[in-house]
Every structure is written in C-alpha cells, then in structure tokens.
Amino acid sequence: MNSEYAPLTGQVVAAFSRRFIVATVDGDLSCQVKGRHLHVVCGDRVEIRRDRDAGVIEGVLPRTSLLYRSDAFKSKAIAANVTQLAVVVAARPSFSMELVQRCVLAAEDQGIASLLILNKADLPETPAARERLNLLTRLGYPLVILSALADVAPLRPALHGHTTLLIGQSGMGKSTLINALFPGADAITAEYSEALDSGRHTTTHTRLHRLDADSAVIDSPGLQEFALQHLDAGALAQAFIEFRPFLGQCRFRDCRHETEPGCRLQEAAATGDIDPARLQLFLTLRRLQQNAAQRL
C-alpha cells in the first residue's frame, strides 16, 4: 500500500468548526471529517486517511472523558480526553460564581479534577475575590493565585501530568496565561471594558498546547454562560460532591429536596454539613432543567 494513503492515528490539537489540525508521528496535518455523523473535538484521538497534503478523519478512538455544555436546545462538546478542568477567574472584570460552579459540576459529572486559578493577583480587589472562592475551596478544590503578566511558575506543578482544559469568562486573562506558558502561542489578548465590567472574546477556536510529554493545556474560547441541561436530576445531585454522603437517605425515594419531611439534604443544610447556598444552586439548576423540558 502506498504510504501516502495508509491509515494513521493522531490527536486533534486544533478545532475550527469542520476543519481540524491533527498531530501525527509525521507532523501536523490539516484534516476534515468524513460525513456529518462523526463529531470531533479538540483532544480526540482519531484515525485518519492521508490524502496528499491533507487528511480525512474517519474514526474517533474511545474517549476517557468528554466535557460539554448544553442548553434547552443543543449541546456543544468542548474537549475530549481531559483529566483536569482549570477555571480562570479574576477580580476585574467581575466573575460569576454560579458560572464557575457550573463548570466544576460538569467536570464532576465526567470524573474530571477541577482547579481554580485566580489571576491578576496584584489587583486590590483580589482578597475579596479570594473570599468568594471559599465556597469551593472549603470543599477541597485547589486554588492557584498568580499574575500571568508577572509569573506563571506557581501554576506549573498543578498542570504536570494532566491534560488541562483552560476555561473562563472573557476578560479573565486566559490568553495572557497561555502566552506566558507557551511563548510561541501568540494568543490574542484584549483589554476589558470597565464601563461594561466585561471582557471580549479573543480566542476563536480550541487549541491544544503541549507542556511536555505528559502534560498539555487546551485553550478554549471565553464564555459568558454554561448550561447543564444534559444532566438529569440524579446526575446533577451527584455532581455536588458534598451531597454524596446524604443521597439515597431521604425518607421518600422520590424526594425533591425542597420541603419534604425527612430530606437529608435539607437537614444537612440546616446543620451546616452542606452550605445552604449550594443546595439553593442545585434547586435552581433543577428547576431550569424542568422548565426546559416542558418547553420541548
């Protein structure tokens, strides 16, 4: 068989809608997908057929994880084979604590570790931002505080041995962090708007960067929302790690964890074993799921 047309395997290192860059033993190859039934994302390990200077992705190898977000109408896969989710926040512009928690819940559903990164440590508002993150650090989620413009060394040990998906709202300094970790990346950065208290998207596609043979970072476009409609009520409850010891112990098997007598989650919230704010978030997310299902 002509080696030019022999099948190859590789890893998707960049995803641009229907076009992909796949890293192979022979170098990076620009590829398209064969047919519309095949869904490919950054991080996927794929089987490809070389066709002269390009390639065709013909199959996706089994994934260890698939992280995606969804709303009532569609789901969007973000990255595959990720072992760690790193949520980047900063004191300025302000970040949504609910959005951070939604990202962490999606990671928990896939058995992916979570890491919190508080960037722009030199800002005077940083201590207050750090206090807001206590809701998650008290549960054991690790936090790295740094200034990407000054020194990213504090982050490197947390990335070692992982394929880490870097995610966060626009304006948090994610692209600056990528440029500091990978000087050749040339990620576009932008100032945020103080008037609007928000940033603007600078990353337009998902890209995998290798730190070393055992470590990689996947950069993803900034986001302003992260829905969890793909999780049913049971999966959603399991994604709250502090709920797990109490699940299945309510008096009623179909307990909604609202006002039912003998609800172990409500009792745990009353005694401080779980944070009432976390239980309220669960109930809010579950109601959003139910409302979305009724609209379909």
Score class of each variant (00 low, 15 high):
Ser215Tyr: 09
Arg200Ala: 07
Gln110Glu: 15
His230Met: 10
Val217Ser: 06
Thr206Ser: 14
Asp151Asn: 12
Glu58Met: 09
Thr9Tyr: 11
Thr163Ala: 12
Ala277Gly: 01
Leu196Glu: 14
Ser96Lys: 09
Glu98Val: 11
Gln84Met: 01
Leu247Gly: 07
Val60His: 02
Ala23Ile: 00
Gly248Ala: 06
Ala128Ile: 03
Ala54Arg: 14
Ala23Arg: 15
Ile48Trp: 04
Ala14Thr: 08
Gln84Tyr: 00
Ser175Glu: 12
Val89Ala: 02
Ser170Phe: 07
Ile218Asn: 07
Gln294Glu: 13
Gly59Lys: 10
Leu67Phe: 08
Arg256Glu: 08
Asn291Tyr: 03
Glu191Gln: 12
Leu116Tyr: 01
Asp275Lys: 09
Val33Met: 06
Ala195Glu: 13
His230Gln: 14
Ala190Arg: 13
His37Pro: 00
Asp275Ser: 06
Ser65Arg: 02
Leu296Thr: 10
Gly35Cys: 06
Gln294Ser: 12
Val82Asn: 00
Pro7Lys: 11
Asp151Met: 07
Leu208Thr: 09
Leu99Val: 06
Arg278Ile: 11
Gln84Val: 00
Val56Cys: 08
Lys76Ser: 05
Ala91Ser: 14
Glu258Thr: 06
Phe95Cys: 03
Gly184Lys: 13
Leu66Gln: 11
Asp275Leu: 05
His201Met: 08
Arg253Pro: 00
Thr202His: 07
Ala79Val: 00
Ala277Arg: 14
